[in-house]
Simulated scan of single mutants.
Amino acid sequence: MTKFIVKRVLTMIPVLLGVSLLVFVILSLAPGDPAVIIAGDYAEEAILEETRENLGLNQPLLVQWFNYVKDIVTKGDFGISWKTGKSVTESIFERFPTTVLVAFLGAFFTAVLGIGTGIVSAVRQYSIWDNLATMIGMIGVSMPNFFTGLLLVFVFAQRLKILPASGNSGWEYYVLPIITIAFSACAGQMRMTRSSMLEVMRQDYIRTARAKGQSERKVVMHHQLKNAMIPIITVIGQQFGILLGGSMIVEQIFSLPGVGKLMMDSINYRDYPMVRGSLLLLAFGFCTVNLLVDIAYAVVDPRIRSQFAKTKKRKAKEEAA
Score class of each variant (00 low, 15 high):
124 R>F: 14
167 G>T: 03
282 L>H: 00
212 K>N: 11
79 G>T: 05
188 G>V: 11
195 S>N: 12
163 L>G: 09
261 K>I: 07
89 T>N: 13
201 M>P: 02
195 S>C: 02
46 A>Q: 13
307 Q>R: 15
92 I>Y: 05
66 F>S: 10
279 L>W: 02
246 G>S: 09
31 P>F: 08
156 F>V: 12
25 V>K: 01
57 L>F: 12
173 Y>G: 05
15 V>L: 13
159 R>H: 11
140 G>M: 02
102 V>T: 10
100 V>P: 00
302 P>K: 11
319 E>Y: 12
88 V>T: 06
90 E>A: 14
20 S>D: 04
288 T>H: 07
115 I>G: 00
142 S>D: 09
50 E>C: 04
276 R>M: 15
89 T>I: 12
293 V>H: 10
37 I>F: 14
147 F>N: 00
279 L>R: 03
53 E>V: 00
201 M>C: 07
316 A>I: 08
110 T>E: 11
72 I>M: 09
77 D>A: 03
269 Y>K: 12
169 S>N: 14
294 D>M: 09
235 V>R: 04
278 S>W: 03
174 Y>L: 15
20 S>I: 01
227 N>L: 01
71 D>Q: 14
175 V>S: 09
166 S>F: 13
311 T>F: 09
304 I>D: 05
101 L>S: 10
146 F>P: 04
305 R>N: 11
314 R>D: 12
63 V>M: 03
26 I>N: 06
13 I>G: 04
96 F>G: 00
211 A>N: 09
101 L>P: 01
179 I>D: 08
290 N>I: 05
118 G>S: 08
86 K>F: 12
12 M>R: 05
290 N>Y: 08
6 V>P: 03
79 G>L: 04
87 S>T: 04
265 D>P: 02
35 A>I: 01
103 A>D: 09
288 T>V: 13
311 T>P: 00
84 T>V: 06
120 V>G: 01
224 Q>F: 03
305 R>W: 03
85 G>V: 10
89 T>A: 13
22 L>Y: 07
109 F>T: 08
197 M>V: 07
107 A>S: 15
112 V>L: 15
12 M>I: 13
37 I>M: 14
69 V>H: 01
165 A>C: 11
147 F>V: 14
33 D>M: 05
127 S>A: 12
276 R>L: 14
21 L>W: 04
237 G>N: 08
276 R>G: 02
231 P>E: 13
281 L>S: 02
309 A>G: 06
138 M>A: 09
54 N>Q: 12
217 R>A: 10
41 D>K: 12
219 V>E: 00
210 R>V: 01
71 D>E: 14
123 V>D: 02
120 V>I: 15
42 Y>P: 00
261 K>S: 14
96 F>K: 03
302 P>D: 10
32 G>H: 10
138 M>V: 12
129 W>H: 07
305 R>T: 13
175 V>K: 05
227 N>A: 04
283 A>H: 07
180 T>Q: 08
244 L>A: 04
26 I>S: 06
3 K>R: 14
207 R>H: 12
112 V>C: 10
55 L>I: 07
201 M>R: 10
315 K>I: 08
43 A>P: 08
206 I>R: 03
104 F>N: 05
151 L>Y: 08
287 C>S: 15
319 E>V: 15
125 Q>W: 04
28 S>H: 12
266 S>P: 05
273 P>Y: 01
176 L>G: 01
108 F>Q: 03
